[in-house]
């Protein structure tokens, strides 16, 4: 039952993918095309995509609220490099992901730590995302069965993992605003159809010519008072600055 593609909740790259896919949905005349076709097309499109982003991540728990500023680079879903810019204490902490492996660089101790399997399910930077989420790669159409439903205002794509897909979720719903063609929310259910997590999209803005929700909130339903918010301050697709040398150990360790 080991599968090459493993999923729990969307990676940041996947978030971008959803944004892209729904943005591109709007440019597709006919929404009658099957969900699979759409997503397939998206994936084809998305595979070569690189991105450069500047984001703010706010983590809320009943005990604290933490705001971080980060910049992130990515190529497809295989390579990602994220560096923390603020707060001062954490400035310079960086994460490098290559395929299914992940490393963290901690400038205070000048050390690169490879994230071991035992820490994969641990939270990334204290947020409601896990290391595992960041590392994941998506092949949605391969691993999930998709169905598309429509209401007057929304599209609903329901994803049910195939029997071999290794994920803790029993079902995922993507809800899309039909008119604006932007995502509204994603809901994650367990096997008994109980809602466990919710990702909400809001504050659509024009970024690089696309209408994209700039604010995403991840809310674990089973943990009261917990929330992670990601706000895209800047976002560029296929920027010229991106090249392979960013996604190396050397860059990970470099002085910044």
């Amino acid at each position: 039952m080991k599968s090459t593609s493993i999923q729990s909740i969307p990676t940041l790259a996947q978030l971008l993918f959803v944004l892209l896919s729904t943005a591109l949905l709007s440019s597709l005349a006919s929404a009658q095309e099957s969900a699979v076709d759409i997503i397939d097309a998206m994936e084809e499109l998305y595979r070569g995509e690189s991105s450069l982003a500047r984001m703010t991540m706010i983590v809320e728990t009943p005990q604290f609220q933490r705001t971080m500023e980060m910049e992130s680079s990515s190529i497809g879903t295989e390579k990602a490099f994220i560096r923390i810019l603020a707060p001062r204490k954490d400035r310079g902490i960086a994460t490098l992901k290559l395929d299914l492996e992940m490393w963290n660089y901690l400038p205070k101790i000048n050390k690169v730590i490879k994230v071991p399997p035992s820490m994969m399910m641990g939270s990334w930077m204290g947020s409601d995302f896990t290391n595992d989420d960041l590392v994941k790669q998506t092949t949605l159409t391969d691993d999930y069965d998709l169905t598309l439903e429509e209401t007057d205002t929304e599209y609903r794509i329901t994803l049910v993992p195939k029997s071999n897909t290794v994920t803790v979720w029993g079902k995922i719903d993507y809800n899309v605003n039909k008119e604006l063609m932007i995502p509204l929310s994603q809901n994650f259910y367990d096997d008994s159809d109980r809602l466990i997590r919710k990702m909400e999209f809001s504050e659509p803005r024009e970024i690089s010519g696309l209408l994209i929700p700039s604010r995403m909130e991840m809310i674990p339903i089973n943990k009261e008072g917990h929330k992670t918010v990601i706000i895209y301050d800047e976002l560029q697709f296929d920027p010229p600055e991106i090249d392979e040398s960013i996604f190396t150990m050397r860059n990970l360790r470099s002085r910044f």
Partner: peptide, 11 residues
């Protein structure tokens, strides 16, 4: 892991 969610690290 720090109490504020950050990665606690030191020598």
């Amino acid at each position: 892991q720090g109490a504020d969610g950050s990665i606690a690290n030191d020598i």
